[in-house]
Amino acid sequence: MILRPNRALTWLFLALTTVIALFPMYWLFVMALTPIGTIPPSTPALFPDPFSLSNIVRLLTNAKDYLRWGANSIFVAGTVTLWHVLFDTLSGYAFAKKRFPLRSVFFWVILSTLMIPAQVTLVPLYIVTRQLGLIDNLFAVILPGTAAVFGIFLMRQYIQTLPSELEDAARIDGCNEFAVFWNVILPLCKPAIAALAIFSFVRNWNDFLWPLIILNKSINYTLTVGVAGLQGEFSTDYGIIFAGAALAALPMIAFFLAFQKYFLEGVRMGAVKG
């Protein structure tokens, strides 16, 4: 805190870093909206000149599966997120408030695997996926995603801070344990669930390596895999590539602007790297 050697210099620095932070994305969008023939303009413009949707039209007519990729990504990220919201909250609650044999063993096993890089599990997961005939199946993208444990920690941390009196009152009123969870805990967890849902969705929307490995047919691609593939398929039609990348970034940017507060709160809760 409180480092101000020189106000003008500080503002200059902050302005400069803001430009550095935002400009690449901005440039991508300008290029996506500038009509591009064979070679893009080498003098960067601040605004698309002339403004045109021709790249996007060309993208959607030539890369026929583009919208399907988006739908696949929504399906994958949405399903994984739903799983985490429900079951991470449930097990987070049990780890936070319940005392049962092997509880700490379970918890430490989960905790210790936080440092296992996902890349280590790729080979066995791929072999099993092949043998089950699930190559090119979106459920094979979804299933390993349900095993991420960061949500369990997030929810446990949060639920630990909730007072236990309300649960006890509900029990006295005759609620069974699930009813206590559903009626008392779940409503109190809304801020943490919002953060968890947002991060889980963004994470899985952006996931790349695993879908790249097991999805072979264009129609099954998720958006990241499809967009990366545009580079090979339309190697010289830069307009299509720019439009594809910009359109893929747009939903997450809109998502961020809409739920900014929860995003930054979620980072603070120590949920994810980013």
Partner: peptide
């Protein structure tokens, strides 16, 4: 934070 929500691919 804004650019950090887009994928490493983009």
């Amino acid at each position: 934070y804004l650019p950090a929500v887009t994928s490493a691919v983009v």
